[in-house]
């Protein structure tokens, strides 16, 4: 699953630390999500989408093999 968290972060001029504080996870977790090393839970994905005021499908997208 690919995501555009880093793009959304850039649009909203937020650092990983800012986003992690708002969402309530560690900065390393945000970094892992952005680098596609960790697929977040539905709750976390929805929290991120809600924070960026975007539908979750715009941020998280399934890939071919998924």
């Amino acid at each position: 699953m690919k995501n555009t968290v880093h793009v959304q972060r850039a649009i909203h001029k937020m650092t990983q630390a800012d986003l992690s504080e708002v969402i309530g996870v560690s900065r390393q977790t945000i970094n892992s999500i952005e680098k596609n090393r960790y697929v977040p839970s539905t709750v976390l994905a929805l929290k991120i989408a809600r924070h960026f005021k975007t539908p979750v499908e715009d941020i998280f997208e399934l890939e071919e093999g998924d």
């Binding site: 309530g24 996870v25 560690s26 390393q28 977790t29 892992s32 977040p40 839970s41 976390l44």
Partner: peptide, 10 residues
């Protein structure tokens, strides 16, 4: 963990 979240639990 220092900052317990779902990734650390994973």
């Amino acid at each position: 963990g220092k900052f317990p979240d779902e990734h650390l639990l994973h």
